[in-house]
Structures are given as structure tokens and as C-alpha cells.
Amino acid sequence: MSRNKADHLWVGQVLPIGTAAWILHKIMGIRYSVFTHGMDIVAPQSNPRKKKLLQMILRSADEVVANSLYTKTELIKLGVSADEIRIIYPGVDPEEFVEPRAEEIAEFCQKYGLEGKRVIAGIGRLVERKGFQFAILALKNVAAKYPNAVLVLGGEGVYGQTLKCCARDQFGDDYSKKIIFCGTLNIRDRACLYSLCEFFVTPSVDLAGDIEGFGMVYLEAAMYGKPSIGGNSGGVPEAVISGETGYIVEGRDISSLSGAMMRLLGDPEEARRMGERARERVMRDFTWEKLMKHHKSQVTNYK
């Protein structure tokens, strides 16, 4: 470190990498800043030793960067001074979002049997906290009023088999006609799904030590002009403005969740307006170019 004349470290992960930064700070006096993302500071707190180490690293940092107001609140609970916390939201690069060709969309529709369907999309790791199990339960209510509505899930994860069992319980052995599991989607197939869907749903829920720090997928959906239904968990209400760019519901509340889904299906024009507002907000507030321009002067103080 001294040979390379490093006088300030930017640490992308509080544990375990932050431990090395803390040691260098104590031995060599090198200052450091830490990026935090939500779950990375919540999960270790169940272990007393890890919690103590977490607090030592965070409290010794010159600055702690949080990815949401929710994460900032959790940092304050750990004893980090509010004055030492700066929020930098996750951002998007508009150039990374491809516009699918008509033939690609048609091929995607044919592959998954989506012709004539009203598509509801969910993309993310298939883990319990994403709340897809509640979206499946809600679709049972939705399908009674909108029989051509389908839920298309893109992603894989340890909870995948449980979700398929849930789908089978609700819709029988031919559940794949209502709940379509696509697995991991490449960038062009993701673009097709976002383009096809009427709205995006990931009703995240709080679990012990497993919280949604923000929710990049809601910004992705917004980039394709789609409103989102998100769960009232962690930083999700900062990614989706309820009533403006979509709806925030309690993920486990099937009545509220299915009600929000039916409102969007029942008023396509309002859904379109919400999607437009969502995209405008992302382009205004969440592109990496604008985020970095806003924070550049503060970051360069450490050079």
C-alpha cells in the first residue's frame, strides 16, 4: 500500500473485505470508505461476533455509502453517525437496454405460449424474500376475472421447486399454462418479456436477515415503460412510488396484491401512464451518468 501511495480505500463489501481495510487503517493509518447494500449489514447481525466486527468496520470508516434511505436507517441503528452516511442509489445505463425486434418478440411468444395472453412479468432470483409465492396465490384471484392473465417468471434459485409446488397447488398439474417458469433469461429474452408484459411484479417480503436493500429490477422494468408492483420491504418503496410509477403493497396480503394486479389489468391506459412516469423518473434520477455527476465532487475529495 505504501509503495503504491494509497491513502484512501473504497471498499465494495463490508464483510469480509472491510476487515482488511480496518486492519490497514489501524496499522498504517490508511483511511477508507465502505459501500453498503442492505442485506450485507442486516444478515451478519444474527451472529454477535460478526455484528461487533461489522460495527467496528463501519464506525471507523471516513464515510459509509448506502444504496437507499432504508439502508441508511439500518446503519444508524448500528451506531454509524448520520453525518457520515451518504446515499448513492443504484443506477442504470440506458445504452444497455436493447429494443427487441418484432420477430424476436413473436418467437418468444411462440416459445412460451403467450399469444393472446395478458402477460405479468416477474424477474429475479427465485428465493423466498422475492415473494413470488404470493404473486402465484394472487394470480388465482386475478384469473377468475381475467382468465387469459399469466405470470411469467424469469430466473432460477433455491426456491424454484417450492414455487412450482405452489403453482401446482393452485392450478393443478397443468399449472404451466398459468405460471410459466422461463429459467435464466439472456438480455434479449429479458427485453422481450419486459416489452410484452403489462406490468412487473415482485412483492418482496422481509425475512430475518434477508431484506431487499433497494430493487434494481424495478428500474429495469421502468426503462421499458412498465409500472411495477413491489412489496413494502426494505428500500423497495424508494424504487417504486406507489400510485405514481406502480403500487407498493404488503407482499403477504393476497387481497391487496391481487387488487393491485387487477387495477392495472383493468385500466391499461393508467398502467401505460404509470409506466411512462416510471421511465421518466429513472431517466431523470437514476442513470449512472447523472448519479456520478451529482456525487463526483464529494468522491474526488478523497483523491
Rank of each mutant, 00 (worst) to 15 (best):
M1P: 12
S2P: 01
R3W: 01
R3A: 15
A6D: 03
D7C: 08
D7W: 03
H8D: 01
G12N: 11
Q13G: 07
A21G: 03
A21W: 00
L24D: 01
L24K: 00
V34W: 00
F35E: 04
G38A: 06
R49W: 12
R49L: 15
K51A: 15
L54I: 06
I57V: 15
L58P: 00
L58Y: 02
A61G: 14
A61F: 07
V65D: 00
S68G: 08
L69I: 13
T71A: 13
K72E: 14
K77T: 05
K77S: 10
G79S: 07
G79D: 03
G79E: 01
I85L: 02
R86G: 02
R86K: 14
G91Q: 10
G91T: 11
V92M: 06
E107A: 15
F108W: 01
K111T: 15
K111M: 08
L114F: 02
K117A: 06
R118E: 15
R118I: 06
I120P: 01
A121Y: 01
I123C: 11
F132D: 05
F132K: 01
Q133R: 15
Q133K: 14
I136F: 02
L137Q: 14
A138V: 09
L139W: 05
A149C: 06
V150E: 00
V150H: 04
V150D: 03
G157D: 05
G157A: 11
Q161L: 10
C166A: 15
A167F: 00
Q170G: 00
D173V: 12
Y175W: 12
K178T: 10
L185H: 08
R188D: 08
R188H: 12
R190H: 06
A191Q: 04
A191R: 01
E198Q: 14
V201Q: 00
P203H: 05
P203L: 09
G213D: 05
V217S: 02
A221M: 08
G230I: 03
S233M: 07
S233F: 03
V236Y: 02
P237E: 02
V240K: 00
I241T: 13
T245A: 11
Y247R: 02
I248D: 05
I248C: 10
I248S: 07
G259A: 15
M262A: 12
L264T: 10
M274L: 09
E280P: 08
R281P: 08
R284C: 13
T287M: 06
W288K: 07
L291D: 08
H294T: 12
H295L: 06
Q298F: 12
V299Y: 11
T300K: 10
K303L: 15
